[in-house]
């Protein structure tokens, strides 16, 4: 009698413990494949061209690549290489609450043996009460003020170095519509 009671009591307690875990597992079974599929989507990138047999690249370029990934307010990221050697970055800033947002957007590599200057010019089509800027090497730069006024950002790239560029968006008020953001990346020859 006591044994049966203990057994049923154990069953009751264990079900109380395992049920929330099982529910969490079930949710994960839906979430994990979704995130994996989103991250598996191919991204366009300038793939490295190794031409030297000794493993040393002979390329002498500034390479701008998309970091990719997902973000709550940044979507449809694209980067194009123009005929003149400069790049254009495009993205859509979706509707958002008033907050500060940041995302790694570009990876810039200076494969040359000399210091190179690079200029960023980025704006949205309409001013939306959002401060838009960049963070490169823990240094913040402002691209567009809340009133829509834009500024150029010029940085120096050290030889044989790699930089991750973050795009920052600080919205003072909630924005209820999507807007296109475009940034020109001009490489000084």
């Amino acid at each position: 009698m006591v044994k049966t009671y203990k057994k049923s009591r154990f069953k009751e307690i264990s079900s109380k413990i395992f049920e929330p875990i099982a529910l969490g597992l079930l949710a994960l079974l839906f979430i994990i494949p979704s995130i994996t599929v989103i991250n598996l989507e191919p991204i366009t990138k300038n793939l490295k061209q190794f031409t030297d047999v000794l493993g040393v690249t002979t390329s002498s370029e500034i390479i701008v690549d998309l970091v990719g990934g997902t973000h709550e307010i940044l979507s449809s990221e694209k980067v194009y290489r123009e005929d003149d050697g400069n790049y254009t970055y495009q993205a859509v800033l979706t509707k958002r609450e008033s907050d500060f947002y940041s995302k790694p957007i570009l990876e810039i590599q200076n494969r040359t043996d000399e210091e190179k200057s690079i200029t960023f010019m980025g704006t949205t089509i309409n001013p939306t009460q959002s401060d838009i800027g960049l963070i490169i090497n823990d240094q913040s730069y402002r691209l567009q003020k809340a009133n829509g006024e834009s500024e150029d950002v010029e940085i120096l790239l050290r030889p044989q170095s790699k930089y991750i560029v973050y795009l920052t968006v600080e919205s003072l008020i909630g924005v209820q519509f999507s807007e296109d953001f475009e940034m020109e990346i001009i490489i000084q020859q």
Partner: peptide, 21 residues
Amino acid sequence: QFEVGNEINGIFSTQIFLSDE
């Protein structure tokens, strides 16, 4: 031509890069 990378942080962050749009 493709490349497999992991340039974003977090779990399940394997990315596949292709050379053209």
